[in-house]
Design a protein around this nucleic acid. Structure first.
Lengths: 257, 257
DNA sequence: CCCCTTGACAGGTATAGACCACTCCGCTTG
DNA sequence: CAAGCGGAGTGGTCTATACCTGTCAAGGGG
């Protein structure tokens, strides 16, 4: 969870730097405060409630803004979480396999209960880019399904899916937005999945996204763009999944060529 | 590059929210300032130099700290970059394929010139965890190779590799730290690669890492952990790669089961 | 007994001011 | 002309203060 859980991150205290890059040495005060906070988190243990910002600032003898800078980094790393008006020590990250298996499967494998909250299901006309990706004509009707992803009831991500109405005409009537879309497409519609192209990057949540997922604004998120095809290589859906960067990691297995 | 390049991120201005999550409406001032800054960036174009923070704060009639909060988000997103003592409009992200091909290959495919700077090459004893992963005995000698990754001379990442000395005894003498390790292992040592397990997550750079890569501290990074095996499924190396989150995205292709 | 009001208090945002380390340019010096 | 020195100005950090919005628990009213 921490960015340096591994000893391999450092060459050791006295390790020689053989490049022209200077070794700075100087440590900002907020970083020292962060270290003190981390020690405190270990004492408190998972789920423990932190004292208020003002009290911590007084205890460490720094300004509240300085303490907040340290706290902000711990928040981004997922070491602490906001819960109501208090701050608590967080649990470990979830590992999600990068595979065709749905979000449901990945979360279940971690021993957690998956869930979804419907934000919106609407029918609209495809813009040229989307039409090209789904291999339909621009303006053709597409479903736009937007859901918040849950793990043990906790909001952890936001998923936005586009698929052609022509391919799944009965979606609005037949599909339960709280269940797995992949299961529906596979079992009810009879689509067999083929390859998918994915792109992963880190982005910042917009205020709207942060609000929907329930994170502080500007938390780094993992953005997954996926274009799924069926076994005949026809496009099925375009998905944009946004996961809390402090709560998720993705794993994959690469095979030799 | 922006976190909402796609219209699919939004349901539209008047889109109904069908869940119990409230629509907030309020926009912090720094977020409005960020929007004004983005408009300015478009005017300036890639490579354009921004006015100073103090001047921008005066122009938008906000405190410098407020302006800095907006600028900090643009920095994290990779929309702007620090260059010396000035701030410039940044170019697009690099896409790196998630495959066994080396860093070298990925960067070349983007039409850029890859490079590396040696930070350190040392020989040390394996700790129990590393020994288990490399299937050697604890205390057995391992190489630790740490290099800064370059694209067109720009520092974009930090790579830390561990591999058993017994497997590659001549590394220190034969290997040119500025070249591709994969090419050396494949061509000179005669290792044929098999599958690899990878994990991707976002972390914050430590001050040391930020210094080596030349980023502002606490920039979100993409952390790639990889355990590479040969075609006989024996472990070859453990790699910890840290890439600038504002400069990289990773792509992969998932095949059906 | 439950619901709702209400206010204390938490974190979020915004401001002004100060100092520091580093970069970079121009100038001096060899 | 090249190298090196120095100062101006930049972003980085830190402080102190103020006000706002949302949370939550206590207490009053139904």
């Amino acid at each position: 969870m921490d960015q340096t859980p591994d000893a391999d991150a450092r060459s050791g205290p006295g390790a020689p730097i053989r490049s022209g890059i200077p070794e700075h040495g100087r440590v900002p005060k907020y970083y020292a405060v962060k270290g003190q906070l981390e020690a405190l988190l270990d004492e408190l243990g998972e789920g423990g409630v932190l004292p208020t910002e003002r009290e911590l600032a007084a205890r460490f003898e720094v300004a509240r803004e300085t303490l907040r800078q340290a706290l902000r980094e711990l928040l981004i790393q997922g070491r602490v979480r906001r819960r109501g008006r208090s701050t608590v020590v967080a649990g470990p990250k979830l590992e999600q396999p990068l595979s065709l298996a749905s979000y449901t499967e990945g979360v279940r494998r971690q021993g957690r209960v998956p869930g979804r909250t419907l934000i919106g299901l609407e029918r609209l006309g495809a813009d040229p880019q989307l039409a090209g990706q789904l291999r339909i004509d621009a303006g053709d009707p597409v479903w736009h399904l937007e859901r918040v992803l849950l793990a043990d009831g906790e909001r952890v991500g936001l998923e936005s899916t586009y698929l052609a109405v022509g391919r799944v005409p009965g979606l609005e009537d037949e599909f339960d937005p709280g269940s797995s879309l992949y299961a529906y497409l596979g079992e009810k519609v009879g689509i067999s999945f083929g390859a998918a192209d994915e792109r992963i990057e880190t982005v910042l949540a917009t205020p709207r996204e942060a609000l929907l997922i329930g994170t502080p604004p500007a938390l780094p998120m993992l953005l997954l763009h996926r274009l799924t095809r069926d076994s005949a290589d026809r496009p099925v859906e375009r998905v944009r999944s946004l996961y809390r960067g402090d709560r998720f990691s993705f794993t994959t297995r690469l095979e030799a060529d």
